[in-house]
Every structure is written in C-alpha cells, then in structure tokens.
Design a protein around this nucleic acid. Structure first.
Length: 304
RNA sequence: GGCUCGAUAGCUCAGUUGGUAGAGCAGGGGACUGAAAAUCCCCGUGUCAGUGGUUCGAUUCCACUUCGAGCCA
C-alpha cells in the first residue's frame, strides 16, 4: 500500500514551511487540505503560500475555486483522491497538508459521499420554516425521519438539523444509514498522520503576530477587492478575517476592535482544530518549537 | 498634608441585613460525515488588598497600613 503523509495542526503552527521542506527532501508534492485556501483572490487572509515559499514544490487544491462558488467535503474528497493518484503515478510521495479536520478525515477514513448536489431551493424552504415556526419545528421534522441521529444533535444546531432533512430529501436515506454506508470501503492508502503543536501561549503569540502581519500586508484592501469583483459568497465569507474586515468596512467596529476580534476568533479556531486532531489516536505529534529538521527526521522515521 | 470614594476570578463589575461569593467577557474542555476558518455543547475556589480589633464566626462592621481615582489646600 502506498504511503501518504498527512501533516495537520492548528493555524499558524508552521505546517506550510515544514511540509515544503519535507517535500524537497523526499521528492514529494503537496495537496492542501484547507477549506479557505481553495479560493482564488483570497491570499493574505488565508495565509496561502506564495510561489516563492513553495520553492518549486507542486501544490494541489490551492487557489482554484472562485469565491462566488460553493465547494464541499464531497468534492474535496474526490479532488484530493485524484491528486494522490496523480502524484503516485509520477513516482512521488503525496503530502496532505492542512488544518481542515473534516477534509483530512474524508481521506484517512475513506468516507464515501454519494453523488448528489445541494438543493438550494429546499434549503431556502427549510430556512423559511425555521424563521416562521422556529428551529424546534425543523428539529421535530428531523426526529420523525431519523430519531437516532437526533440524539446526538443539539436542538440549536441549525446546520446539522437541516442536514438531516436535506440528506433524506436528496437520497431517501436517513443520516444514520448514510453514515453507515459511507464507511464501507477499505482505506486505499497507508496514511501516516502527523500534527504540529506548540505550547498554548506560544501558539497564541504566533497567531496574534500573524494577524498583525496580514493587516500590514493589505488584508483590508484584499477584502475590498473581492467585494468589488464578486457579488456573492456562499461559503468564502466564512473565512476568518474576511467577515470581520467586512464588518469593519460597514462601520461596525473600529480598526483596532476588528484586529482584536480577528485575533480572538483565530485563537478559538486553533483550539477547535486541536480538539479535532487530538481525536485521532494514530497521530504522531510534533513540537513546533523544535528544530525543523528534527521534526522532519521524526516524520521520516515514522513513515518507515 | 486633609477629605471623599474605591480595592472581590486574567479583565469589567455585582453581592454577602456577619455563616468563606457570582455574572459578562477572556480562558479551558468537548462534539463534529456534503456550509467545517462553519455550527453546536459543557466548565466559575478566588489569601473577597494587608494587619489588627469586635464577634461563637469577618470578605461583610471598626481602626490602621498600602495602592488607585477624585476633590480641597
């Protein structure tokens, strides 16, 4: 079974630099697992690696979706599998790098997604019901379809409640059935998962610094530009930094308030990422504050 | 120098008619299968500034000390 290296970890932990150096040493190519770096014209705020940083290492699934388009894990899974195959066919080693746990899991657990597309009309319809009769109404509807799934979903978790209904509408299956079927296929590659972490205070310092640098590099202008260029953002505006700058431009915050808010939200995001990555017990943890080559050596040992 | 007000959780503050205390924010932990940088759940012990006094018992009342804010000299 071919090996695929996975490098995850919270934002600002140093995944990019480590993975590029690793790729150079093992003749690897990189597949991003980042739900925001997929978007074009969103560079500063997503900390997308520049051509210079890439040092000639080929990167996949970066900078290829228009911010006014939708994208989802299902598509990611398909695109990433294709990229893995391509890299292996060239005799190189694929390195998955990114902080979107959902995307990473779709690969390492070989989760199968049926070929369906989002029914926007139905979603709007559900949205209307929620507004009119309250979320409880949707929760009740979902309970009638899949009581088991609902025991694990909060009565306030609108997205997941709606998803139960959407899955049923699109496939005629319950979420519970759907999930059972999604895990039937054996995992196709030997995924070796590594995660970078730092002492919490250090990580937060790095995040704060990174946000200051983004502002200096022109994040506000970048947001202005994409607001000019595109007229809708189904998911891209969920990106950290982007929504806060929009609020600032609309006068909701002062500049300093906006900066502090981005820092805070990014710290919280990092915490959520760590919660996610800690779940996988196979993961080998690297200390980001240690020498980079030392960490690369740990990876090299870990994959053999 | 005098007077007044304050000093309680990392921060902003509430409160205890004397029986060792609680909100918001921050922070921590967790969940996560087609929006995931999203969405959602759970978590509050801190010499109640210090020292003495009164009291069965003081964070609460009293005195002094320290620090801060304001006013008067």
């Amino acid at each position: 079974m071919e090996k695929v290296i996975v490098i995850c970890g919270p934002t600002a932990s140093g995944k990019t630099a480590l993975s590029i150096e690793l790729a150079k040493q093992i003749n690897g190519e990189i597949i991003s697992a980042d739900s925001m770096q997929i978007y074009k014209d969103m560079n500063i705020g997503t900390a997308k690696p520049t051509q210079e940083e890439m040092q000639g290492i080929k990167h996949y699934l970066l900078d290829f979706i228009s911010p006014d388009k939708r994208y989802s894990v299902a598509e990611y899974k398909k695109d990433a599998k294709k990229a893995i195959k391509e890299i292996i066919s060239k005799g190189k080693t694929p390195i998955i790098v990114g902080g979107t746990g959902l995307y990473v899991d779709s690969l390492i657990y070989e989760i199968e997604y049926q070929d369906i597309k989002l029914d926007e009309e139905y979603r709007n319809e559900l949205e209307k019901i929620a507004n009119k009769d309250g979320l409880e109404k949707l929760y009740e509807m979902a309970e009638k379809i899949d009581r088991e799934a609902m025991t694990k979903i909060s009565k306030k978790d609108k997205k997941r409640i709606m998803r139960v209904l959407e899955i049923y509408k699109a496939t005629g299956k319950t979420k519970t059935q759907q999930e059972a079927e999604s895990r039937k296929k054996p995992v196709e590659y030997d995924y070796k998962v590594f995660a970078i972490n730092w002492e919490r205070g250090k990580l937060y310092e790095r995040i704060n610094l990174r946000v200051d640098i983004m502002i200096e590099q022109g994040l506000i202008q970048e947001v202005n530009d994409i607001l000019q260029k595109y007229d809708k953002f189904p998911t891209a505006m969920q990106g950290l930094g982007y929504k806060e700058v929009v609020d600032y431009l609309n006068g909701k915050y002062t500049k300093q308030e906006m900066i502090d808010k981005i820092k805070m939200e990014t710290r919280r995001y990092a915490k959520r990422q760590l919660t996610w990555f800690r779940k996988n017990k196979q993961t080998v943890w690297l200390d980001g504050s240690k020498d980079r080559q030392n960490n690369i050596n740990i990876i090299l040992e870990g994959i053999n």
